[in-house]
């Protein structure tokens, strides 16, 4: 290796280490501050990172029944689970129909959905709220309501999955059809197994979204704390006027939210990369 290259690599390492520090700092801070006691030390924000004394007080608070954190956590898990299942099925169905079949109105459908996608999602918030209310799915029924909203319009997000289906050779379909397989059999026994990566990607993205859904969840569950999800509670803890007392609790809650999602993501990272890269090139 030439001398010049060695120097170049040296600086590259320095830059990469600096980047790593900047990127990891918030997570390290979050973990450290979640171990600060709000009883003996201070529950708000302080000018130092490492707590003076290691304590689990914030975590104990979350599980103690003083707040409904476990309930909120379960709500989010339930929403995430059903939205993932529903959304994946819908996206696969729509993608297969649009990728493999030619029918009257296909272009019309795709163009309409493209145009609909240009409207901002929050525009229709109030209307959706009243639609849910008609069905009795607000406040106390907010959890099924959020699941319904999460699944209902997911057909419009077919791009990445359809792009992947398009790359599976059509000759495979034709061969199966000559053997007497119906379209439905082809989808279930051929396309789905062949598209495992993109299906996992779709499910992963669907699973991640409900954890961040603050806006709609707080609107639909308004005033009914049993129906909150973790995003609503975390947001409330940070933005309440006395968040000083709740800051370490927010950190602890955040860690509990982040750990399972992060582990899941890291395990399925390979599929995520494939989906994101494929989606970016297709546009």
């Amino acid at each position: 290796m030439s001398r010049k290259k060695k120097i170049g690599n040296f600086f590259t390492y320095i830059v990469l280490i600096l980047i790593s520090i900047v990127w990891l700092f918030p997570f390290v801070g979050l973990v450290l501050q979640s171990f600060r006691s709000y009883v003996t030390e201070f529950g708000g924000m302080v000018g130092y990172l490492v707590p003076k004394k290691f304590s689990l007080d914030s975590y104990i608070y979350l599980f103690s029944g003083e707040c409904k954190f476990i309930r909120w956590y379960l709500n989010t898990l339930i929403i995430a689970f059903f939205v993932t299942a529903g959304q994946t099925v819908v996206v696969v169905c729509v993608s297969y129909a649009l990728s493999r079949m030619r029918f009257a109105g296909r272009n019309f459908l795709m163009r309409t959905w493209l145009i609909l996608g240009m409207f901002p999602g929050f525009l229709t918030m109030i209307c959706l709220y009243f639609l849910l209310k008609l069905l009795g799915l607000t406040q106390a029924g907010a959890v099924p309501g959020l699941i319904l909203i999460g699944i209902a319009s997911s057909g419009m997000g077919y791009y990445v999955c359809k792009g992947y289906f398009d790359t599976i050779p059509k000759s495979l379909d034709e061969a199966a059809r000559i053997d007497g397989a119906t379209r439905a059999q082809i989808l279930i026994s051929m396309i789905v197994p062949l598209s495992k990566p993109i299906i996992i990607y779709t499910a992963l993205v669907a699973f991640m979204a409900p954890w961040c859904d603050y806006v709609f969840a707080s609107y639909v569950a308004f005033g009914h704390s049993n129906s909150y999800n973790v995003a609503v509670s975390l947001q409330n803890w940070v933005w309440t006027n006395d968040y000083q007392g709740f800051f370490t609790r927010f950190c602890a809650g955040g860690i509990l939210v982040a750990i399972p999602v992060t582990i899941l993501f890291m395990c399925l990272q390979k599929y995520y990369v494939e989906g994101v890269t494929g989606g970016a090139v297709k546009g």
Binding site: L116, L128, L148, A152, S153, G155, T182, A184
Partner: peptide
């Protein structure tokens, strides 16, 4: 088989219609 697309798309299209098209027209 031949009309499988309709089977696949009916529910998603209804969902999009009720929870996206209708609210957007309303707004």
């Amino acid at each position: 088989d031949k009309n499988f697309a309709q089977t696949l798309l009916t529910l998603p299209v209804i969902g999009i219609f009720v929870f996206t098209v209708l609210p957007i027209l309303f707004m």
